[in-house]
């Protein structure tokens, strides 16, 4: 291995690592607030990437109809759950807002030739199509299970993942999706080449991480989510409801997942079922962080990306094995520290 190869592998590792870091942060966020291990996070990634790909290749989109169906179910539930109470003006406004959003999204997808839009507009449209599915997913599948055992939450999480993979196949077909890079140039520093798309990914991921950090440290909404994770009873007493916290974290997770998909689509070909393994690598990061620490999880995820890239070079067929056995030393370490018997 020479310096050029190492630099190339390092780039790949850092790019993937940055994505895994984003994913492990959202996994941790969802877990600490709702105690749900969000296995379907990977499907937000693939949906994001494949939607972009479909838009760019001019294939007819079908995703907006999924969104429409889900939103209509959501609105119907809103109306149904208020059937024996007086509906306040605020709730009417909320319902009207949802319906208007849906109408605008449908109007845009049906009137414009999407493949001719600028890439930024395509990305925003993709986000608009996918992010609302996060809170709706929480509402339909998880909200009725607020008091359920961890095992039940886990099973439902996996079942949702299974269903979403099926939906992915239905919407996008079995072919892989690949998109145009944001820019095509190569940077050269002495004799090392750097792909500009790699920089795009790394800097966007960094920006998102910093934005998340800012949101959680500086805004009251961010603090409210942290509070819900720290002490749910305390949060409820201040009017921060678990439903609000759940929907907000799912929206954030959907946003991060979808954005990650858009970012890596130019580098990697993704298929309808690629999401699982990607999100699992985010989980490896989260486990390294002990399902609690954000910085350690992000760092662990970057290490996962780097190790993956280098094991590609040395032992490509053992790549996945190496990545997933990476958690063993961390399990040993945590196991040594654990002493007390706890009731769940």
């Amino acid at each position: 291995m020479n310096v050029q190869v190492a630099a190339l592998l390092g780039q790949d590792g850092l790019t993937n690592g940055a994505i895994y870091a984003l994913l492990s942060l959202s996994i941790l966020l969802v877990f600490t607030v709702t105690r749900i291990l969000l296995i379907p996070l990977g499907e937000f990634v693939t949906f994001g990437a494949l939607t972009m790909a479909a838009i760019q290749t001019g294939k007819p989109l079908a995703l907006e109809w999924l969104l429409a169906t889900l939103m209509l179910i959501d609105i119907a539930l809103d109306v149904y759950s208020r059937r024996d109470r007086t509906v306040s003006r605020k709730q009417y406004q909320m319902i009207a807002l949802k319906a208007a959003y849906l109408a605008v999204v449908l109007f845009v997808t049906q009137t414009f030739t999407l493949s001719e839009l600028p890439m930024l507009a395509q990305s925003i449209l993709t986000l608009c199509l996918i992010v609302p599915m996060g809170p709706i997913m929480y509402r339909l599948f998880f909200q009725p299970l607020a008091d359920a055992a961890p095992l039940v939450l886990l099973i439902v999480s996996i079942a949702v993942h299974v269903a979403m993979v099926g939906i992915g196949l239905l919407l996008f077909g079995p072919e892989g999706g690949h998109t145009k890079p944001f820019s095509n140039s190569m940077l050269q520093i002495s004799n090392i080449f750097i792909k500009s798309q790699a920089l795009w990914v790394i800097f966007s991921a960094l920006f998102l991480i910093l934005a998340l950090f800012f949101a959680f440290e500086r805004t009251l909404y961010g603090k409210a989510l942290r509070a819900a994770a720290v002490n749910q009873v305390g949060a409820r007493l201040l009017g921060i409801s678990p439903v609000f916290a759940g929907k907000a974290t799912f929206a954030l997770a959907a946003f991060i997942g979808c954005a990650s998909g858009i970012l890596i689509a130019p580098i990697t070909t993704l298929y309808y079922d690629s999401g699982f393994v990607i999100s699992l690598k985010g989980f490896v990061g989260a486990i390294i962080g002990g399902l609690a620490s954000y910085p350690i999880a992000a760092f662990g995820a970057v290490v996962v990306g780097l190790i993956e890239a280098f094991s590609m070079f040395w032992a490509s067929s053992y790549k996945e094995i190496i990545v997933f056995t990476l958690i063993i030393p961390f399990l040993i370490w945590r196991s040594m520290k654990a002493s007390h018997v706890e009731d769940e």
Binding site: L220, K223, A224, V230, V233, L237
Partner: peptide, 28 residues
């Protein structure tokens, strides 16, 4: 408003953040 017996503070957050969160509904 209820101040519960166990206090239910946000232990890993700052005193000021705890107080600000008390006004969450007003902020909203």
């Amino acid at each position: 408003g209820l101040v519960p017996e166990k206090r239910e503070l946000f232990n890993t957050m700052s005193v000021q953040d705890n107080l600000l969160l008390g006004a969450f509904q007003r902020y909203r």
